[in-house]
Design a protein around this nucleic acid. Structure first.
Length: 490
RNA sequence: CGGGGUGUAGCGUAGCCCGGUAUCGCGCCACAUUUGGGAUGUGGAGGUCGUAGGUUCGAAUCCUGCCACCCCGACCA
């Protein structure tokens, strides 16, 4: 492991890549755009999954699993959907290889599929095709299903965690008897996402709706949570869609209502992905590496012994043996790093790079004084604290760190929501201050498009809690009833 | 798809212009001394130089083709 990483002020993009690689979260695979998620990175994802999965179940959802392959014909059943995904689909055309006689393995042309299979970029189509067989009556509704899966989108340009060709996610797909119920579900899951982002990841988000242009392919309405990264760029961290009856109509999913009438089912779908890992990394980390919120840190406390000789180590180790169960009693995950192959300084740097929230260093001096040295990753402060009551102290400090990380990100985010009242001011802010820019917009796709072409800024969302306010569009001067949030985005 | 870059040991690299089978650092293995912010010494292991062909007595180096990945941009979660 080489010393140090590129500072984020010098090259934010490189800083990000280096953290991902050097903190041992993931690495590039030999396939373009694909990554190997390494054990440390995957354990963070597992913690995210566990929390989200629990929340989904608490809100009445069940997990199921649908196939990776989707018959090509399913895609064309919903017009907007196929338009949205057609250009980024991986397609399976054959099912067998053969030896060409020269020692090369080639595709066996005789093993061509009658109908090509699409590697799912999202599962609406195959799921709605399945739901057709599951739903007959209003008694079968609501149907609340989630799936944890991988999906493939053949993007032109990829970035570790933020946009990979294959990524891991969850996708909820629900069916309801009425539009109101489906909308309620859509909004409820958006709240679940926002709660997770803020209270577990420590990433403040703006809840809002997408404009028509930015909407999910096949949705009537797309809700989203938008986060702000430290370089002032926005990141869409999760989406929840009200699909109306589009997929029910495309796949002919009807139910008999209480009144005995045949009606199309109403739908929602919602998802978050390993992109959240990217958000987590970019929102909090610093020039020493990753900074993890305690609630998602695989290791919350690392203990580094500092000793001369085996005798001192024995003493420290037996203290740690007593401390560890007390920490575990508070639900704290702890690692005792007594490797003899690395010196303390190396370990300090390594755990900072990996974002471990609290580090304890214990040496002979501490053992004599009945203390330990405690270092906080988020503020880099060091304290000498008594061994007496240490577990409780750490328990409380972890909560403080969680709060501090969130508060810091919230302060940054709030300082980077700026109102712009003219196009000049708007462009100026994008170049200098960055972040979200609240501005009036005339509501047309043309204006949105022109602003995007001229400034690379897009409308991230129309915030749900937006106050109504008369104004004029910054580009066209036409009347507007509210401001929307613009930003350059990942 | 445009622009840029890179491919040499597990990782990062030198060598290439001016051909003679490979440099250095980190890491790894052994032993010793070390341990309060990225240890030191001694010894050791590890290489089809991305790939295919060509020129040559001889190619990491020159020529031609191919492949792959990364970064920046347009597109997208």
């Amino acid at each position: 492991m080489s010393k140090g990483i590129t500072s984020k002020s010098e090259d934010y993009s490189q800083w990000y890549n280096e953290i991902v690689i050097k903190a041992d979260l993931a690495e590039h695979s030999s396939v373009k755009g694909c990554m190997v998620i390494k054990p440390y990175g995957y354990s963070i994802w597992e913690k995210m999954q566990a929390v989200l999965d629990h929340k989904f179940k608490e809100t009445g959802h069940s997990n199921a699993y649908f196939p990776l392959f989707i018959p090509k014909s399913y895609f064309s059943k919903e017009a907007a959907h196929v338009d949205g995904f057609a250009t980024e689909c991986a397609v399976v055309t054959h099912y067998r290889l053969k030896n060409d006689g020269n020692g090369n393995i080639i595709v066996d042309e005789e093993a061509k599929l009658e109908e090509e299979l699409i590697v799912r970029p999202t599962s609406e189509t195959i799921i709605w095709n399945t739901y057709k067989g599951w739903i007959q009556s209003y008694r079968d509704l609501p149907l609340l299903i989630n799936q944890w899966a991988n999906v493939v989108r053949w993007e032109m340009r990829t970035r570790l965690f933020l946009r990979t060709t294959e990524f891991l996610w969850q996708e909820g797909h629900t069916a309801h008897a009425t539009a109101e119920e489906a909308i309620e579900e859509t909004e409820k899951m958006l709240d679940v996402y926002a709660d997770f982002a803020e209270n577990w990841m420590g990433v403040p988000v703006v809840k809002g709706r997408k404009t028509e242009t930015e909407r999910f392919a096949g949705a009537l309405d797309t809700y989203c949570i938008e986060a702000l990264m430290q370089d002032g760029k926005a990141l869409q961290a999760g989406t929840s869609h009200f699909l109306g009856q589009n997929f029910a109509k495309a796949f002919d999913v009807k139910f008999t209502s209480k009144e005995g009438k045949q009606e199309y089912v109403w739908a929602s779908s919602w998802g978050v992905s390993t992109r959240l890992m990217g958000a987590l990394i970019m929102a909090h980390s610093d020039d020493s590496g990753l900074v993890l919120p305690p609630k998602l840190a695989p290791i919350q406390v690392v203990i580094v012994p500092i000793h001369k000789g085996d005798e001192e180590l024995q003493k420290i180790s037996s203290f740690v043996d007593e401390l560890t169960p007390r920490l575990k009693g508070f639900g704290i995950s702890v690692k005792y790093d007594d490797r003899d192959s690395q010196r303390p300084g190396f370990k300090f740097a390594e755990y900072e790079l990996k974002g471990v929230p609290i580090r304890l260093a214990i040496g002979a001096r501490d053992m004599e004084n009945g203390t330990v040295e405690l270092a906080r990753r988020d503020t880099k402060e060091k304290f000498t604290v008594p061994q007496e009551g240490l577990a409780e102290y750490i328990f409380q400090m972890l909560a403080q760190i969680q709060q501090n990380i969130y508060d810091k990100a919230l302060k940054f985010r709030n300082e980077h929501i700026t109102e712009a009242n003219s196009y000049e001011e708007f462009k100026e802010l994008l170049e200098t201050k960055t972040g979200f820019i609240a501005a009036h917009w005339d509501g047309t796709a043309e204006t949105e498009k022109r602003i995007k072409e001229e400034t690379k800024a897009t409308i991230r969302c129309i915030p749900l809690d937006n106050k109504l306010e008369d104004g004029v569009c910054i580009l066209t001067g036409k009347p507007s009833k509210q401001r929307v949030l613009f930003a350059r985005a990942y």
